Simulated assay, not measured.
Amino acid sequence: MTTAPATPPDHRVVAERGDVRPRWRRLMLPTAAVGAVAAATVALHVRDPHVQGTWGICPTKAVFGIECPGCGGLRAVNDLTNLQLVDAASSNLLLVAAIPVLAYVFARWSLGRWRGRSWDPSERAMNWSGLTLVVVLAVFTVLRNVPAGAWLAP
């Protein structure tokens, strides 16, 4: 007599009953993410990226000679740690504008883990979010590298 191979539980069934792991285990990943972001932020506060060469150079800038969407991001984080919002926006407006969106996504993810119910956006929402991200990054990159958008360059 052969037995049927064990199949993983259906995703919908797991979502209905929730994550049965202890809360502290469910929150390990969000806690690690907060710790990593905090450590990087402290490092950027202590070692000022406004000083030429302290954090190296942008590979995109070095190879292609253009400002990538991330150029100025380290300086923007440093400015934010010094409570200089205008200077941070001047360094990388896209990063500063993305902070509330990133905070929302992190909060939804963490709250889902806290409650034991994962946040599971639809495939359509994920596709539109990904497409929107690619378009925004492309437009921002082009704009900050043409004379009309020079004010967006760090």
Rank of each mutant, 00 (worst) to 15 (best):
Cys71Leu: 00
Thr60Cys: 12
Trp114Lys: 03
Leu102Asp: 01
Val46Ser: 10
Leu27Glu: 12
Ala39Met: 14
Asn145Pro: 01
Pro69Met: 01
Trp55Asn: 02
Arg21Ser: 08
Gly116Thr: 06
Tyr104Gln: 10
Ala148Gly: 09
Thr60Val: 15
Leu102Phe: 12
Trp114Phe: 14
Leu94Thr: 01
Met28Gln: 09
His11Ile: 12
Trp119Arg: 08
Leu152Glu: 03
Pro9His: 06
Thr2Arg: 13
Arg25Ala: 12
Pro154Leu: 06
Val51Ala: 11
Ala148Tyr: 08
Arg108His: 06
Pro49Phe: 10
Ser122Asp: 07
Gly53Tyr: 07
Val86Ile: 11
Ser110Thr: 15
Pro100Ser: 06
Pro121Arg: 09
Ala153Leu: 01
Ile57Gly: 11
Thr7Ile: 05
Gly73Thr: 02
Asn82Tyr: 13
Ala88Glu: 04
Val142Leu: 05
Leu152Thr: 00
Ala43Arg: 12
Arg144Glu: 00
Pro121Val: 03
Gln84Val: 05
Val101Asp: 01
Trp119Gln: 05
Val77Glu: 03
Ala150Ser: 09
Phe140Ile: 00
Asn145Ala: 01
Gly149Cys: 06
Ala103Ile: 10
Val136Glu: 05
Met1Ile: 11
Ala62Met: 08
Arg21His: 04
Ala88Ile: 06
Cys68Met: 03
Glu123Asn: 13
Trp114Leu: 15
Ala98Ser: 15
Ser129Ala: 14
Val42Gly: 03
Gly56Arg: 05
Trp109Val: 09
Gly65Trp: 03
Arg115Val: 08
Tyr104Val: 15
Val37Tyr: 14
Asn92Asp: 07
Trp128Tyr: 10
Cys71Val: 03
Asp10Asn: 14
Cys71Tyr: 01
Gly130Val: 00
Val135Arg: 00
Val77Ile: 15
Ser90Arg: 15
Gly116Tyr: 07
Val34Phe: 13
Asp87His: 13
Met1Gly: 14
Ser122Pro: 05
Arg12Lys: 10
Val96Asp: 00
Gly70His: 09
Val134Asp: 04
Thr81Phe: 06
Ser118Pro: 05
Tyr104His: 11
Val34Trp: 12
Ala89His: 02
Arg113Ala: 15
Leu152Asn: 02
Thr3His: 14
Ala150Asp: 11
Val101Arg: 04
Val51Lys: 03
Arg124Leu: 12
Ala39Val: 14
Leu95Ala: 11
Arg113Val: 02
Arg113Ile: 04
Gly112Ser: 08
Val37His: 09
Arg115Gln: 15
Phe64Lys: 07
Leu152Ser: 02
Ile57Val: 15
Phe106Asp: 07
Trp114Ser: 13
Leu131Trp: 08
